[in-house]
C-alpha cells in the first residue's frame, strides 16, 4: 500500500502543478524547490497549461505490475509548451498513429488501483491527441 505517496503527489499528478523560478522565470516540473536551470530556490507554484508535443514514444505490451489492465498502451515523453519534459501514458488515440511532434493535451485519468480491488484509486495525468489541434 502506497497511500501516503499517492496523497503527497496528488497535486502535481492531478493537474500538472509545478513551479516557476522567481529568478530566471523557468517553469519547473516536477516541482523540486530548486531551479534546475539557475540553481536558485524556486518554490512558487505554477500550473502547466497541459499543452505539449510528443517528443518520443514507445508501446508497452508487457506492463509492470499494477498496469496490466491497460496493455497495450503507449508511453511518451511529452515536451510541454512551458519547457519541461514529462513521461506519461498516451490515451484516447483512436485510429490515429502516434507521431513525433503530434500536439497533445493533458487529461486526468485513472492510472491504476493501489494493490487489489480493495485499494485506493490512483488518478493522474495522461496525454491525448489535442481535441482542438
Amino acid at each position: 500500500m502506497e497511500v501516503p505517496r499517492h496523497w503527497r503527489l496528488k497535486q502535481q499528478r492531478y493537474a500538472l502543478v509545478g513551479e516557476v523560478c522567481p529568478h530566471c522565470d523557468s517553469k519547473i516540473f516536477p516541482p523540486r524547490d530548486v531551479c534546475p536551470y539557475c540553481g536558485e530556490e524556486a518554490k512558487t507554484q505554477y500550473t502547466m497549461s497541459g499543452k505539449g508535443k510528443v517528443y518520443s514514444y514507445t508501446i508497452m505490451r508487457d506492463a509492470p505490475a499494477g498496469y496490466e489492465e491497460n496493455i497495450p498502451y503507449t508511453v511518451a515523453v511529452v515536451a510541454l509548451e512551458e519547457g519541461p519534459m514529462v513521461t506519461a501514458q498516451l490515451t484516447d488515440l483512436g485510429d490515429k498513429p502516434v507521431e513525433i511532434g503530434m500536439p497533445v493535451e493533458m487529461v486526468t485519468r485513472r492510472i491504476r488501483q493501489d494493490g487489489d480491488k480493495h485499494g485506493m484509486l490512483v488518478y493522474g495525468y495522461k496525454f491525448r491527441p489535442a481535441v482542438r489541434a
Binding site: 492531478y14 489492465e69 491497460n70 501514458q89 490515451t91 484516447d92 487529461v107 486526468t108 485519468r109 485513472r110 492510472i111 484509486l121 488518478y123 495522461k126
Partner: peptide, 13 residues
C-alpha cells in the same frame, strides 16, 4: 467510457 475513465475523470474534464 475508456478503460481509464470513470465519473471522477469525466467530471474533471
Amino acid at each position: 467510457a475508456g478503460i481509464d475513465e470513470d465519473v471522477i475523470t469525466m467530471s474533471i474534464e
